[in-house]
Write a protein that binds this DNA or RNA. Structure first.
Lengths: 109, 109
DNA sequence: TTTTAATACCTTGCAAGACAAAGTACCTAA
DNA sequence: TTAGGTACTTTGTCTTGCAAGGTATTAAAA
């Protein structure tokens, strides 16, 4: 049982997820599960099957790097860190996002 | 020759296109080519191969209807009109959009 | 009267990506 | 040694954006 509203939100989230990930990692390095929690807090819910491939793509593009770190409990964590290239991309995304907000406002009048 | 910036913008546009179409048609009925021009004016450039299937999908969902009208020059035009269901969906999208703007702001801090 | 150009709509095939679901691996405590 | 929690990864499906090519109508030029 899923509302229309959920579909709408899910659809809109697409394309901005990369921006969200870079935004989160720009503040503080993080591992996938903690990123999921932060997205949840911001009402930008995403699932594992979406996030993991996305992180790998961004890493392959040189926007992120990572290092392994021991966990207090459970298996080691893969901490992702934003790179210089990632920060440059984030700056571009800031402009792109602001432009899109303006465009929508124009269309809505 | 395409800049990174173009990719970023194209990526972000995805998922908001349906919102743009409904926004445009909420103001005034329009045919595909005129919708393309309005999107271009708002810097939300889209191509025919994206727009036509999208209009058909929205029509099949009952968000739009259409009627044929003679053109002053050339073949007849298919004017799309937003339906009551389409307006309800647009209202949902307004909330969804505003929430997303807020979420991004939260993430960017 | 054929050809050209402009306008308009539509379809096909490919590729990217979101997601559900299932799988692998590590660690601790009962 | 099994159960449960944490964490990362992969597979398969479905949707959708888009390039490219196609069809149809009209009017004006050659």
């Amino acid at each position: 049982m899923e509302s229309t509203s959920d579909n709408v939100r899910a659809q809109m989230r697409k394309g901005v997820l990369e921006y969200c990930i870079l935004s989160i990692l720009n503040k503080k390095e993080a591992y996938a599960s903690s990123i999921l929690e932060e997205l949840k807090r911001a009402n930008m819910l995403v699932v594992e099957g979406t996030l993991y491939p996305l992180l790998i793509r961004q890493k392959n593009q040189g926007l992120l790097s990572y290092r392994w770190e021991e966990s207090p409990q459970g298996p080691p964590r893969k901490y992702y860190v934003i790179t210089d290239k990632g920060r440059a991309q984030l700056a571009e995304m800031d402009s792109a996002w602001q432009e899109m907000v303006d465009s929508i406002e124009t269309l809505r009048k």
